[in-house]
């Protein structure tokens, strides 16, 4: 009897964790809608009159940042796999590397903005299509910042030896979110490339 009660208790906990992971997916749908709105806003604006549009070639720095983020997605996956295999020191290494690549992406974006500004493609601009570049990349960067916080939380978790079930949960949610940010960036980059 007691075992059965214990069992239902665990089941309830499990369904809560499942629900939380599901919430993350829902949150990502919300974030996606925000960028979808920006994309359609960009299209409506740019098609609205002649003389609008990005009208510059995107700096290669964006390509480098894309590569950084893709590699970080890979290291994130390796960190997650290490956590499942109970190889915690390896998990820490991969996780740290992911964070480092994320920070690198952060600075690469700033670098790209610098290049754009030096070309005269500035944010405060009467051709708002060019302002949109900053809106897209800036809003994404805010999400990357949030993503880095999630990664650091997962790292703190493994450093503090939290129970394995919670460690895996944190790693799993961090990984899903980080891959999402990667895919979101690729979408933004391709969208901007197609409109340059």
């Amino acid at each position: 009897m007691l075992a059965m009660v214990q069992n239902t208790e665990n089941k309830e906990d499990l369904s809560t964790l499942k629900a939380r992971k599901f919430s993350l997916w829902l949150g990502m749908i919300g974030m996606f809608m925000m960028f979808a709105a920006l994309s359609s806003g960009f299209i409506v604006y740019t098609e609205g009159a002649a003389g609008r549009g990005i009208k510059t070639i995107l700096p290669t720095a964006f390509l480098y940042s894309t590569l950084l983020l893709m590699v970080s997605s890979l290291t994130m996956h390796l960190a997650y796999r290490a956590s499942r295999q109970l190889r915690f020191s390896l998990q820490k290494v991969w996780l740290l590397l992911t964070i480092a690549l994320g920070v690198g992406f952060f600075f690469m974006q700033f670098h790209a903005w610098g290049i754009l500004i030096s070309r005269g493609v500035v944010f405060i601009n009467n051709n708002a299509s060019q302002s949109f570049i900053y809106i897209f990349t800036g809003m994404h960067l805010l999400h990357i910042f949030a993503g880095l916080l999630v990664l650091i939380r997962a790292l703190v978790g493994v450093l503090r030896h939290i129970p394995q079930s919670r460690n895996i949960f944190r790693m799993e949610t961090a990984a899903i979110f980080w891959h999402f940010l990667d895919i979101l960036w690729i979408y933004i980059y391709v969208f901007l490339l197609l409109n340059q």
């Binding site: 829902l26 919300g30 809608m33 925000m34 960028f35 979808a36 709105a37 806003g41």
Partner: peptide, 14 residues
């Protein structure tokens, strides 16, 4: 709400 409120965020940011 989940599908529409984020769109208002975009509008408001701009």
């Amino acid at each position: 709400g989940l599908l529409s409120f984020p769109v208002l965020v975009s509008a408001v940011v701009l």
